[in-house]
Amino acid sequence: MSVPSTARPGARLRLAALLGPPMVWLVVAYLGSMAVLLVSAFWSTNTFTGAVVPVYTSGNLLALVTDPLYRDVTLRTLLVALGVTVLDAAVAVPMALYMSRVASPRARVALVVAVTTPLWASYLVKAYAWRVLLSPTGPIAWLTGGHSSGYGIGAVVVTLAYLWLPYMVLPVFAGFDRVPDSLLEASADLGAPMRTTLRRIVAPLVLPAVAAGSIFTFSLSLGDYIAVTIVGGKTQMLGNVIYGQLITANDQPLAAALSLVPLAAIVIYLLAMRRTGALENV
């Protein structure tokens, strides 16, 4: 009787010590900052000095709905995020299929390394590389005889798609890898041609992995505001408007209110993706 009663508190203590710090971090740093964001969206600012005044107002959230500027920018940002996701999926699916099913084991390792190495380079270096590529006197203009679309929303989609490609390729690759060979053999034994097997057996099994990758590409694009200032020309995305309100206008409450838009978009996207089983694949 005495042995378990002394052992149990010790075990509990150890468990608490193990889980405590991450839980504190999660609650205080992560959820806490989220709560501060939500609360400060309801505060006002001193019109002259720009200092935050804790006086309740719902004008900030109302502005999100009524101001056509925020509607346009939100729409543009969502379109960019979707464009990046579609482009990444279109590139990643055939690539991952080749990597997992066609390539020899040695080539597979080489390809995985090739996909992941760009992650070592700095984000800024890669974005500036695209700025050089897309410049009016750059290689793309030279190759196409001066028909480069230049800086703008198209350049933003291409650059972000490049930046986030590994986050799409890796889950999709893992998804293809998880498809059991026995299913493919069974399908072939039953007389299904390759195309039918891909469509009816592989595609449904890999779709959750594509959805999982899309969560990365979608949410990373939604929050981006640096690549767009480098290759976007005069294009504004939600991140730029938030940055503008926070840094330029010094209007922290409105910036906080604006930050709720991508937050809401991601929550909705996650709920939608959950139906595909993507969350078990991340």
Binding site: S44, T57, S58, G59
Partner: peptide, 17 residues
């Protein structure tokens, strides 16, 4: 609730000029 509240309260700001 926020939107309903919005109808009744305008943006309040104070100045120090």
């Amino acid at each position: 609730a926020v939107l309903l509240g919005a109808c009744s309260t305008a943006t309040t700001t104070t100045g120090t000029a």
